[in-house]
Computed example of a mutant assay.
Amino acid sequence: MLRSVLIALSLIAFPAAALAHSCPSLMAEIDAALPDASLSEEERARVMELRSQGEQQHQAGDHDASMTSLEEAKGILGI
């Protein structure tokens, strides 16, 4: 019984941990694409703002919000 409960808890916790670990990879993708991106100054500023916001949200443990911010930045970059 206890083993079943532990397995169930592990399965519930795993997706949250997986999301938490994809924030840094999204930040790295943005960082790699930004220098060569053809963006207006406004778009570049928005990407940098979203990137920073996403990092702060990640550090605060709000991984859903971080993913949203970082995905929006990627969308502006076209990646």
Results as ranks from 00 to 15, higher is better:
L2T: 12
R3T: 10
R3M: 14
S4F: 08
S4M: 12
V5W: 06
L6Y: 08
L6D: 04
L6W: 10
I7P: 00
L9E: 02
S10T: 07
L11F: 09
L11G: 04
I12W: 11
I12K: 11
I12P: 02
A13C: 09
A17D: 02
A17R: 10
A17Q: 10
S22M: 11
C23P: 05
P24M: 03
S25A: 05
S25Y: 06
A28D: 11
A28N: 09
D31Q: 14
D31P: 04
A33L: 11
L34E: 08
D36L: 07
D36W: 03
S38D: 15
S40L: 05
E41H: 00
E42V: 05
A45H: 06
A45P: 07
E49K: 13
E49T: 03
R51Q: 15
G54N: 06
E55I: 03
E55S: 07
Q57W: 05
Q59R: 13
A60L: 12
A60V: 13
A60Q: 15
G61Q: 04
D62A: 13
D62Q: 14
H63M: 04
S66D: 03
S66T: 02
M67G: 04
T68I: 02
S69Q: 00
A73Q: 03
A73H: 06
K74T: 02
I79E: 13
I79G: 06
